[in-house]
């Protein structure tokens, strides 16, 4: 593949069975998947697993991408679903033990000279109920608008605003 193709071209070709296009697409978006997964999971091991999981899912799921939303928005949803599946799986494994421990920041790199307060906030956000957490991270960490967040999450914009409101209320007590 010598000529760089736009996302949509790549997606269409990959979905149509073009192996090289698929390789290029996955290669191009792997970093995005990993980084997003990392932000949600908070540790490298889980993020790597989730990203790999998404890569495998894409092989089949690309066909269901209808092009109505931006590819990255759609990809967010695939990643978020994979995160959620992984965390539920973790909860099952731990037999109701606090699954959150597994996903709390365990290897925040030492070069992040971030404030402890920020890290606590980050941890607290990860411990919110799933929908609130997703909304908060998309709006504040990924700087998406409420409208975009709504599209990614597949809910109404007003619902996103409500999630954010609820999350802030909860965070006030946690941080």
């Amino acid at each position: 593949m010598n000529v760089p193709l736009s996302n949509n071209d790549l997606v269409r070709r990959a979905a149509g069975g073009d192996r090289a296009a698929f390789a290029a697409l996955v290669g191009e978006h792997y970093d995005f998947m990993f980084r997003t997964a990392y932000k949600w999971c908070g540790n490298r091991a889980d993020a790597e697993d989730v990203a790999q999981d998404v890569c495998v899912r894409l092989a089949r799921a690309l066909g269901s991408f209808d092009g109505r939303s931006a590819f990255t928005s759609w990809l967010y949803r695939v990643v978020l679903n994979a995160v959620r599946d992984r965390q539920r799986q973790g909860a099952r494994r731990a037999k109701q033990a606090d699954a959150l421990r597994e996903v709390s920041a365990s290897d925040v790199a030492p070069d992040q000279e971030s404030a402890v307060a920020e890290r606590q906030l980050w941890d607290a956000v990860r411990q919110l109920p799933e929908k609130q957490r997703d909304a908060m991270l998309l709006v504040y960490a990924e700087e998406r608008s409420h409208a975009e967040t709504a599209q990614i999450m597949g809910v109404k914009e007003s619902t996103v605003s409500w999630y954010v409101h609820e999350a802030k209320k909860a965070l006030k007590d946690m941080v």
Partner: peptide, 17 residues
């Protein structure tokens, strides 16, 4: 809350990729 975006994910490892 906007400080949430300050926390950057590390680069993925080549092997995992």
């Amino acid at each position: 809350l906007k400080s949430l975006k300050n926390i950057e994910a590390p680069a993925p490892s080549v092997a995992a990729r």
